[in-house]
Design a protein around this nucleic acid. Sequence first.
DNA 1: TCGGGGTTTCGGCGCCGGCCGAACCGTCGG
DNA 2: CCGACGGTTCGGCCGGCGCCGAAACCCCGA
Lengths: 242, 242
Amino acid sequence: MTESRALSRFAALLADETRATICLALLDGRAWTAGELATHAGVAPATATGHLHKLVAGGILTEQRQGRHRYVRLSGAPIAQLIEDLAGHIPATPTPARGLRAVTASAALARGRTCYDHLAGRLGVAITDAMDHKGLLSRDPGFTLTDPGRTWLTALTTPTGPTTPTGPGAPTRSRRPLARGCLDWTERREHLAGIAGATLCTHALTSGWLTRIGSGRAVRVTPAGTAALTDLLGPHSAWTEP
Amino acid sequence: MTESRALSRFAALLADETRATICLALLDGRAWTAGELATHAGVAPATATGHLHKLVAGGILTEQRQGRHRYVRLSGAPIAQLIEDLAGHIPATPTPARGLRAVTASAALARGRTCYDHLAGRLGVAITDAMDHKGLLSRDPGFTLTDPGRTWLTALTTPTGPTTPTGPGAPTRSRRPLARGCLDWTERREHLAGIAGATLCTHALTSGWLTRIGSGRAVRVTPAGTAALTDLLGPHSAWTEP
DNA sequence: TCGGGGTTTCGGCGCCGGCCGAACCGTCGG
DNA sequence: CCGACGGTTCGGCCGGCGCCGAAACCCCGA
């Protein structure tokens, strides 16, 4: 008897069209903000908040607060599998390409942009991946710069003269972490933030590696930037994207 | 958008505790009557009727009218699989042995009885299985007597003298089929009905193979019946049940 | 042909739950 | 420090749906 109660409770989470829309959108495996989901589902933010509470409480979603944003994603592969099965075993639907396409982002923004004071977009994620691959960065469990990473960053920002204790690798007393992960809203993967991210971004802009496109947050890699990034982190398609 | 609508509609079918109870009960793969399900779920017959309508319309259940009864079962293996997955992926439940036990039937009735004019219960199902196993009966897709089956039945009812065109194997013009399946309400499996089932039942009673228990529909196999059935269809525990 | 039991339909009641607007809070950006 | 913005909470509205009793329907069994 209590088993049917549990089943009905769980099914009820998907029995609302708005919540179903949310879950199907999240099937892409990425994280969405509450506001995005509200827009996507066509309801007021207040309504989406309530739905997200239920879905999180029901174990379907997990949330990740980040500043004033609330990112939410499917809690795991089994749940995703279950929802896909449910969506699949229904009378065959034409499946009109779901995903993030509805939340149309400027192509330039998706390519590369600033996120507060660091880099995001495919560019930011690619840089983060390359740093991880080169052993400059550790993702486990939180973002931390390795010793080589700190050296690398210090050398980057002080190309001439000896290393000084004023570089970003120095024991600053700021509460802000040297490195931290920041969830990317187009890539939905974490990219480098924190002091290191900000330093890198500032340096890239002041060195002419990147230029802002118009007045927005989008940035473009210059030829000089392509060369510099390839030299520092190896070749990557993100450096050479049109 | 319409996909989420379909998903939510489907999930809504299981989102009610009464309907969830019904679906879990039907997970045993057998057919239940509307009244049984109403009792099992603890609701009025009128309420169960409404739920069954929705479940049938939603493709979860298929129904099978039989006289004044409405038998209902899961529509297929995929749906059963899906429901099991749903029930399984929820926080682990102790699973307190579900099934038909609540619908207590008289032990004698469950053993053997008449169903209208033919045999039912474990006895009826066992006879049907034995006939199928001996190639006298084909279950695909509807019940039909094979040529050996027709010969067998004719010989059974006319033990002396030559085969006559008046036997059950003769081309009768009745609209009633020679053989058909009838859903058994204790075994939840089909047993032989139609002219063949009626002929067999009548013969078994008139030959003293079976005797009625009291005034009810329950029947008991006599020693003579045990010998005859073993001779005709081979040994089977159903012939010798106490 | 009649009685009885399983099932269905019909109204009506009551509650649960989704939805929003408005006010509030915390974070970010200048 | 202040304005902007994303998110949350709080009421209140409203539609949908589950539930039942009563009456009708249908078919079996006698």
